[in-house]
Write a protein that binds this DNA or RNA. Structure first.
Length: 276
DNA sequence: AGGAAAACCTGCGTGC
DNA sequence: TGCACGCAGGTTTTCC
């Protein structure tokens, strides 16, 4: 479900909840069905007693930084977190119980209907399976560096630029919604062969990549269907979508109907007139 | 070897 | 109403 802007907002909300109060993990309760991948009870046990120092993000992964370990969480398509819910509901899978020195309690609950999400635990970031094969962070890299990197990555690729842009080795955090939006803003047709992009086009792509994602982060991400960052907080970037989910509706720039096609099994939205 | 397709799941909207 | 079908924001595996 979530791409970089949505995960970034979950991270922000979780840290707000923590408020640097140094919560110590007291218990991890498994209350639902198994996820695609999750640590053993013994691995979870190794986190007990450790303080949660904060939550970071790398690519679309949330990183819960404990004193001597990192708990990585992918939200998959439908994962979400709740803080201190009244009770357990359908599709809740893990409950993390914390306490701090003021004797404040905090309960974080992971809910995931489709169960595509997962957890990993390791001592260091480098040892996490999911940390491998990741390209640069789009919002924390210099445009010139991103351009050089993408130009090299796209070179000799026969794949279409939309699928290539979603490859985490190109740049991390771009999923199906923002790939379409970014290409629209860059004026590049999603079917375009990645290896045939001119350097000016890659430059525009980098500009759009950063401006679209930055704006989406600032607006709390896109809430289509049911994405909520934490405690039912909604994003509103969906109101800024120019193409995604707008098949046959008029283009906001030129008025011609937005087109929908399928690439590598994923829906792509684009404007035939505005994108070349 | 690169890239497409399938697989992993549940839920919801649509159309018959 | 009920049922079949298609589709959904990700990642990993399989297949060609």
């Amino acid at each position: 479900m979530p791409e970089l802007p949505e995960v970034e907002n979950v991270k922000i909300q979780l840290n707000k909840k923590l408020q640097d109060l140094r919560f110590q993990l007291m218990a991890v309760e498994w209350v639902g069905k198994p996820l695609r991948k999750s640590p053993s009870a013994q691995e979870f046990h190794s986190l007990l007693g450790q303080k949660l120092l904060g939550v970071s993000r790398r690519a679309k992964y949330l990183l819960f930084r404990f004193e001597t370990s990192i708990l990585l969480n992918s939200l998959g398509m439908s994962g979400s977190w709740k803080a201190n819910p009244q009770s357990t509901v359908l599709h809740d899978h893990f409950v993390f119980k914390f306490k701090n020195t003021n004797s404040d309690f905090l309960k974080l609950v992971y809910n995931d209907p489709r169960r595509f999400g997962f957890f990993e635990i390791h001592k260091t970031w480098q040892h996490l399976e999911s940390a491998k094969n990741l390209g640069p962070e789009p919002l924390e890299s210099e445009p010139a560096f991103l351009q050089k990197h993408l130009q090299k990555f796209f070179k000799a690729k026969t794949q279409n630029v939309k699928s290539a842009l979603m490859n985490p080795l190109a740049v991390v955090g771009v999923g199906n919604i923002y790939a379409s939006e970014i290409l629209f803003h860059a004026g590049i047709r999603p079917q375009k062969n990645a290896g045939r992009l001119k350097s000016k086009q890659v430059q525009r792509l980098v500009q759009s990549l950063q401006s679209v994602l930055r704006e989406a982060v600032d607006r709390g991400g896109s809430t289509i269907r049911d994405f909520k960052s934490l405690d039912s907080i909604l994003g509103n970037y969906q109101d800024q979508h120019f193409v995604y989910g707008r098949a046959s509706k008029p283009c906001r720039i030129c008025g011609s109907p937005i087109r929908k096609t399928v690439q590598a099994g994923r829906s792509t939205f684009w404007c035939q007139h505005c994108q070349k």
